[in-house]
Structures are given as C-alpha cells and as structure tokens.
Amino acid sequence: MNSTIRIQNHDFDLGAEYQLLRQLESAVGAVVTFAGLVRDLEKNTSINSLTLQHYPGMTESLLQEIVDQAEARWDLIGITVIHRVGELLPSDQIVFVGVASQHRADAFEAAQFVMDYLKTKATFWKKVDQNGQQHWIESKDSDQTASDRWSADD
C-alpha cells in the first residue's frame, strides 16, 4: 500500500491530493477524501485564530501506526494524511485524509477510522485566540467515544 504522511505549515490542495490517490493504480475504484476546517466558533464564541502545536517525530510515528492499522484492517491501495501546524484562521483547512481502495466500503471505513484515531492519539494540541485571550482547547469525550468504537468491534 502507498502511504503519505505530511505535517506542514502551508495549505494543501484537495484536488491535487485526490488526483494522486486516483492515479496510484488502475485498480483504484474508490477514493474517499475528508478535509477538516477551522470553525469560526469555539463554545459559541468567535475565534480570531487557532494555533496547532505538535511533537515532531512522535506525531509522524503515531500517524504511521494509525495508517498501518488501517492497512491491516481494510483492503486499501493508498492513504494520504496531511495535518497542518502553526497559526490558522477560520475556514482554513487543517487536516486531510484520503483513502483509495478497490471498493467503496473499505475507503469509507478506513477514512473514518484514520480521522477518529488521529483525533485521540496523534500528538497535536490546539490553542485558540478569542478576543485576544489565548487558551488551550480541551479534549472531547465524543471524540474518545468515536475512537473507542473501532476497538469495541474486535
């Protein structure tokens, strides 16, 4: 399987990433893509900016582990994970997950699995600026619940 993992400050081009996955092999019959964006509100209050910190080296290893687990679990041809770091503004793209497979069910499920695990396991932390006050975002129980259901299936 082809896997691409990138952590970067600059933006990504969803169309270009889709084309790369589409063209991996002629056997590709499904490509599922997900893009996560910066919301304008955090707890009903507008934000000026969002800053993403990560743990260089460890983050890449953890994302590779997640991708490896997806590969072991579904019949996949390619996975691309891109996560931005640094300062972002509302409606900016934060994260991209794209999965190519022969059949759609594998791509749909693997894309959701990668995002659910990324949110609860990969070493990223978000800080928001609201009216000039900066604070770190708290983790959400709903993200943990979404992640847990993949292990409950085993």
Binding site: G36, L52, H54, Y55, M58, H83, I94, V95, M115, L118, K119, T120, K121, A122, T123, F124, W125, K126, W136, I137, E138, S139, D143
Partner: peptide, 10 residues
C-alpha cells in the same frame, strides 16, 4: 522525557 496532555488535533 515529554509530558503530554490529552491531544486535540484533527
């Protein structure tokens, strides 16, 4: 040695 609070990426 690193100390990691709950992660909040994605």
């Amino acid at each position: 040695l690193a100390f990691l609070p709950p992660v909040t990426g994605g």
